[in-house]
Structures are given as C-alpha cells and as structure tokens.
Amino acid sequence: MRNKKIAFLIPCYNESKTIAKVVNDCKKAIPEAVVYVYDNNSSDGTDEIARKAGAEVRYEYQQGKGNVIRRMFREIDADCYVMLDGDDTNPPEFAPEMVNLVLNKSVDMVVGDRLSSTYFEENKRPFHNIGNSIVKKSINMLFKSDIKDIMTGYRAFSYQFVKTFPVISKGFEIETEMTIHSVAKNLHVENVITDYRDRPDGSESKLNTYTDGIKVLKTIFRLFKNYRPLLFFSLLAIFLTVISLLLFIPILTNFFKTGLVPNFPTLIVSGFILMGALISFFSGVILDVQVEKGRQDFEYRLQEVNYQ
C-alpha cells in the first residue's frame, strides 16, 4: 500500500513576520507532508522567507484569496489537502486529526472550528465576531446544515473535493462558497474544534470587516438563489402575493359595499404584481429541475474523479 500524499496549502499576501513559523510548525505537525506556499504579489519578501524555511513556493498574480485557491487546487495533486492561513492564527498541530478524518473516514471537507474554542477571546475585532455569527446562523438556517465555523480558512479536503469544486469567488468570500457547495452537494463534512491565536504585533489582517462582509452576504444571497431556487423564488412569490392582496382587498371590499370599482389603476397594478408572483413561482420550479440535473451530473463527475 502506497504512502498517502499530504499537502499543506498556504495562501499568502505580505506575511513575512509569520510565514517561517507557520511552515516550520506544519513540518513538525506532519513531517511527511509537502508544504506549498502560494504568494499573491507580496512586497515584503514573504516568498523568500518561506523558501528558506523549506516550503515549495509558487505564485498567483491575480489578486485575491479566491484566485489563489483556484490556482492551488488546479496545480496540486494529493490524497489530502490541509489549507491554513499564513498569519499563524491556525495552529498546525490540529492537522493530523483533520487528515485522519479525510484519509480514514472518507470525509470530503473538515472545518477547523475556531468559534467553539478561543476565537471570541483572542480576536480583537468585535465586528468580525458579530459577522462570523451572523454568517454561520444564516447559512445553517437557509441550507439546513450544522457547520460550526463558516469563515475559517483552516480546512482539510479530499482529492475528489478539490478536483470537483468550481471556484467562482475571487476574494475572502471563498470560504462561504466552499461551505455552501459542500452542503448543497451532500458532501461529507465534519467539524474539528481548533484553537485560534490572534495575529502577532505588526501583522495586519487583509480582511476588511465592511467591504468583505458585504461581499460575503452577496455570496450567500447568490448561492441561495442558485442552489435552492424553488425556495428562493417561492419566498419572492409569497412576498409579491401579499403586496397584491393588500392592494386588491380594499377594492374588493368597496365593490361588495357599493358595486363600484373606483380605483382601476390600483386594480391593474395588483393584477400585474400577482402575475409577477406566478412567474416567480414557476421560474423556481423550472430552475429547481435544472439544479436537480446538476446534482446528478456532479455525482457522475465524482465517479470519474475517483477512477482517475
């Protein structure tokens, strides 16, 4: 039986203060693993420091974490992938447990759960804490899942996950996209509680609480529409129907009392809104059939990847 290849994937942008420690900690955690650092246009010598620490350094010149992950997933072949940030906030000593779940329990994605341990004590940005909680609750409610940490960059993946995951997002919303994809495609996801360390002095987060937060919320909205169109358009249809009835009921009441319809423009608007509700509902029905066909095609794709 051949040895399983394990790869650490570390996307980096200006992490010169921490990258050497992260690479060394990865090698200590799983000595047989190959450590890949993907530099995303750093200007502080991150790549050279990582190379001296023993990592294999590669480059992605399109800015954005999503673009880096797309490049990593295309280029690297392994039986198990462990992705973590280069800012030394994700302790690599939890990686063996995550790898074990992928290699021996056939888990497709393992989520490093910071929120159940030290995240809220260590993280000094309160709006990050609030944002993480909102995103987690929203996705778990909309997709009927139980993912403990949506925004974490600390994850382990199977080969079939990496080679069948379509990367669409360009930036930090990539973790949200991974999570929703896993839940919608019925992939095997597990949570592992990990510690979280705040960034050391002099190391700054590249995540903007507000602009990146808005992008994440837009991604949730877009993927909810794409992956669960029947529910999405049914809710829209209900909303439009309620508006139509609010406009129509006073006219109907007046008609029963007087036999007259004095507000024809309002009646016409009410009718058009109701037509919009019907169109919305049947659009959801049609798109839901296409999503179901997409799930079937995805299952065939998984079988092809397993035989490669």
Rank of each mutant, 00 (worst) to 15 (best):
V305N: 02
R114M: 12
R199D: 01
I69S: 06
K163P: 03
I251M: 03
I150K: 05
M98S: 06
L267H: 01
D195I: 03
F221W: 14
L84G: 05
E121A: 11
D149E: 07
F157W: 04
E48Y: 11
S203N: 14
L207W: 10
K144S: 15
I286E: 10
K124Q: 14
T209L: 11
F232P: 00
I19V: 11
Q303M: 14
I76D: 01
F221H: 12
D87W: 03
R228M: 14
G64C: 08
F233N: 15
T219G: 02
K257E: 03
Y300S: 13
E15K: 03
I180G: 02
K27P: 08
S16D: 02
Y119W: 09
V242N: 08
Q160W: 12
A50N: 09
M83K: 14
Q160S: 13
I174L: 11
P262V: 08
T118P: 10
E15F: 06
S145W: 03
N3Q: 14
R58L: 06
I268C: 09
T176Y: 00
L267E: 10
Y196E: 00
G112N: 13
K52L: 13
G86R: 10
E48I: 06
M109L: 12
E56P: 00
L246C: 10
E122P: 05
M83I: 04
F281R: 04
L287Y: 11
L247E: 00
M178L: 12
H188M: 12
K185E: 06
S169M: 13
A20I: 02
S145L: 05
N140P: 01
P166L: 06
L260A: 10
R197N: 15
I147S: 01
S106C: 06
N208M: 07
F161M: 10
D198Q: 15
L247T: 02
I220C: 04
T266G: 13
D195Q: 14
I139M: 11
G284Y: 01
K28S: 11
H181D: 03
D195L: 15
D297E: 10
R71L: 07
G45P: 04
I10F: 03
K163Q: 05
I139W: 07
A53R: 12
I220S: 00
T89Y: 09
E75A: 10
